[in-house]
Write a protein that binds this DNA or RNA. Structure first.
Lengths: 146, 146
DNA sequence: GGTGAAATGAGCACATG
DNA sequence: CATGTGCTCATTTCACC
């Protein structure tokens, strides 16, 4: 992981479909050298994959919410993770410091979907005391790199 | 936006670097037809772009946090958005319903960076009463499609 | 990591239903 | 109007240096 790798990753984050020749010109290497580095970065898991960035509004994924999950007693991150993984509306989940035990980002088609997902969180995850939901009103920023 | 478009998008979300021929075989069209649809989806803004998915831990972006922003009085989403946009550590920001006015996802290099970003939020954004920060302990889920 | 050749895929004009 | 076909050119991807 040297500086060239970082510049290659930066380029790929900005344009995930950029050709090796363009990246090579950017970082000052040949195209095959860039491909070898990208292959290695993917194999090492530094680059986990490539994806299309979709406008949620235009796709009909209208309702998004941030949900604090508060649990009774103690629960392992692994147990939380495997339970959350079964709920497809959960796009991001993380255990956090502070009063809440975990924070979820839920993306649902409509309010009904959101309600259903929240109900599954409360029933399928062990020891959930309560959830605190903040529904997204307007998306201000959606960055993919710093 | 028909069902074929949705399947193309689904394919591109799963693999942002997939060739048109592979997508074509998947959805039952020819490669040029798929390219035309993808070009249209990008032009229409349904697909906003393509990006590499990077493992934050392996990149040294070690500290991530969800931050509730509580404001005094009223503030427009536009004012919040333009203020947040100046702080590069903020990767996602949205106004929300409930007690908080906005929720941020901040990705910082270390705790010092996080602290600096939070200080900027409190000073550069108008009418901020207080912030409530939950530092991510472990990432459980990071999905890019439902 | 660079170079060159072979294979693969992109991208375009034109014809078709 | 959107798709399919055949072609040309660029890119990828592999060998080897």
């Amino acid at each position: 992981m040297d500086d060239v790798d970082r510049r290659i990753i930066d380029h790929l984050v900005r344009d995930g479909r950029a050709g090796y020749a363009r990246i090579a010109a950017d970082v000052g290497l040949s195209a095959p050298a860039v491909k070898r580095r990208v292959d290695r970065l993917v194999a090492d898991g530094v680059v986990k994959g490539f994806t299309a960035v979709v406008d949620p509004d235009l796709m009909g994924w209208a309702v998004e919410a941030y949900v604090e999950v508060h649990c009774r007693g103690t629960i392992t991150p692994e147990a939380l993770g495997s339970a959350f993984a079964r709920i497809p509306e959960i796009h991001a989940a993380a255990t956090v410091s502070g009063q809440a035990d975990a924070i979820l980002r839920i993306v649902a088609r409509d309010v009904r979907d959101l309600e259903r997902a929240l109900e599954r969180v409360r029933t399928e995850v062990d020891n959930v005391d309560h959830t605190d939901t903040a529904i997204v009103l307007s998306r201000l920023i959606d960055r993919y790199t710093g």
